[in-house]
Amino acid sequence: TMSMHTKFDLFTYWTSLISEINVQLDQAIPVKYPEQIYESMRYSVLASGAKRATPVMCIASCELFGGSRLAAFPTACALEMVHEASLIHDDLPYMDDDLFRRGRLSNHTVYGVDMAILAGDALFPLGFQHIVSNTPPGLIPETRLLRVVSEIARAVGSTGMAAGQFVDLNYSEESLVEFVQEKKFGELSECSAVCGGLLGGATDDELETLRRYGRTVGVLYQVVNDVLEFKKEQAEGGGKKNRNSSFAKVFGIEKAMEKAEELRVKAKKELDGFEKYGEKVFPLLSFVDYAVDRNFDVVGD
């Protein structure tokens, strides 16, 4: 069955989930007093064209074990909130200093640095609150919910994404490129796969497999992103400052693509053990190919 996944319609699966996720995120952040903070949070979280790869991976992992999509949505949305929070902070002037994000002005460029810091500070706890308040009672044992909270907290924390950002900003050794990639991009992907597994009822062994799979796909996705970006930079001239962590920039495009193929094989191999779940593994398998091939444009409404 494993080769059948090429017939799986990832595009439809993904885009229909995007619509549902967007509706839920919209409802999760209503505008109240003081309005500016909610507008700033919404500006980033509800940016049109967001791919929602993180929440979609969470839902696909949950469904792999026969878990209900309804049980996974709150956590999926929370993952997107904390993801946006960390992007907002990463874009700040004394961090990556990015004026743009997804082709439009970054949060602090529109709302100011103070508001951007606070929008991030508000999105982290909103994510946790969203999980514990909105996961349908009875579907998930509370001990699992607490493991989800802990998993997300660890992923964004001082040994996870914050560590990746810190090393990215302060070191430029080639030997650290992989560390930064794993922390900045592998960590959240790993977290989203594991959270989905937790919500779907995966065993501890299966969670470990999802951990390795998620991390590998996250890094793979970024390695290919960096290649695409680097090609664009070479064609147009210029490029981003403050990024020491681009695999393509450091080792060249050819090496980066070799690395990508290596990661593709590794990610798929992790899924071998899930063959018993039949077609339910197709979304996770298809993500791996999508990460390299980018054979369609995922655009939310």
Binding site: A85, S86, H89, L92, Y94, M95, I117, G120, D121, F124, P125, F128, V149, S150, I152, A153, R154, V156, G157, S158, A162, Q165, F166, L169
Partner: peptide, 16 residues
């Protein structure tokens, strides 16, 4: 930059 990240990390650690 470290101050922002340390704050974010403390927030996360509190929940963890």
């Amino acid at each position: 930059s470290v101050a922002v990240l340390a704050g974010d990390a403390l927030l996360a650690l509190a929940f963890e």
